[in-house]
Design a protein around this nucleic acid. Structure first.
Lengths: 203, 203
DNA sequence: TAGACAGCCTAACGATCGTTCGGTAGTCTA
DNA sequence: TAGACTACCGAACGATCGTTAGGCTGTCTA
């Protein structure tokens, strides 16, 4: 709690990770929990155990800080998608489930960057949103291609609705799923079970 | 645009609706578009064509204003659900579709109260959230009963996941569906088509 | 060893925030 | 007509906001 750095070793790090990364992590978590405008730079500084002015040594503004958090979050889901695409799938359904699981894992991974992307993006300043839109569009186009591949009988409009509804369903999990209590793989399996077989299927 | 009330008739109303309702409507729309903390009382006042102090004649605080907006939004979906339940359905699937359509119609109805509920709730002040939770829980329990009725083979845990994922899918439409361009009924039909039959069904 | 630089600090800036005070019209009731 | 009440306003309050200026350390490099 004190501001004096009483570290015995030469590299001054408080918890485990250095200042800049700690600011990023804490800010992402706070943006996720409380929202962007609701979180002040002083609150972020307090959580990262630095003084408010120190944040500006690493980030030129609050908007820049948010933009980097959103970018990191998009990188996480993009890489997760690429990794899921790299493994051979035994069936279209298994392929879909692998990607849903990858998206959800990215959502609940150690850092809250992706989840912050979900909750904060709609209210982010226009300049920040514009910068993030390109990455989002690219990610969404990958999903469109995936859906067309596993369900080629769908019209392009139906694909669009399914993709956006699936995104809504997956991303809403940050509000109600606790990764500490349940298995993300089980969650992905449950979602794909309904999405693939439908509620009307009588087992 | 001017503040002077140059109405010829006795009741002083600027557009069509009186001061209190206009404040509610404009605030709901602004909260929906920009978020709660991002919208100032001065902005609301400007949109409703009153002075900031006048808002406090109708609402004791910004939180109270939000709480009433959320309450109106919940009433809208609750009534929509009850109306959908009142009509006789020819099949479980038709019953489900009627309720999905009712929820979406409430989401895109003339006022933005329900949609504001979707986007603003996670970041609302704790006191406001607590007040709204009771209504939400009741509405969600109605959906749980509905899902158990139309798909009785599901476990209670599967029902929970399906309900929350469906809510996520439906509520996300406020971010990507434009009711002025497409039919809400068609949207409901497309969602239920996928939800009921599944992607794996080959027509 | 001198200088550059990263990292972080204290203190304060102007702007904006939610909110309140005291007042002024206009309308309705007794 | 006196009084109460509703609706609204201008002006200001203290608090908090994002941000900046300037200074202090310690480490690395020439």
């Amino acid at each position: 709690m004190t501001a004096t750095t009483t570290a015995t070793t030469t590299p001054p790090q408080t918890h485990d990770v250095a200042g800049r990364d700690r600011i990023l992590r804490e800010a992402a978590q706070l943006f996720l929990d409380r929202g962007y405008a609701e979180t002040s730079m002083r609150t972020i500084a307090g959580a990262a155990d630095v003084r408010p002015a120190s944040i500006y040594h690493h980030f030129s503004s609050k908007d820049t800080l948010l933009a980097e958090i959103l970018s990191i979050g998009m990188d996480a889901v993009t890489h997760a998608f690429a990794e899921a695409a790299a493994v051979a799938a035994t069936s279209p359904r298994a392929r879909l489930e692998a990607h849903v699981a990858a998206h959800l894992h990215a959502l609940f991974a150690h850092h809250a960057f992706t989840a912050a992307h979900v909750t904060v993006f709609p209210f982010a300043p226009v300049s920040v949103r514009r910068a993030a839109v390109a990455e989002r569009d690219q990610y969404e186009s990958q999903w469109t291609a995936l859906l067309l591949e596993v369900a080629p009988h769908m019209t392009s409009e139906a694909t669009r609705v399914v993709r956006l509804a699936l995104f809504g369903a997956m991303n809403s999990t940050v509000h109600w799923f606790d990764a500490a209590e349940g298995s993300v793989d089980d969650l992905a399996e449950a979602i794909v079970q309904t999405l693939w077989d439908g509620l009307g299927a009588t087992p």
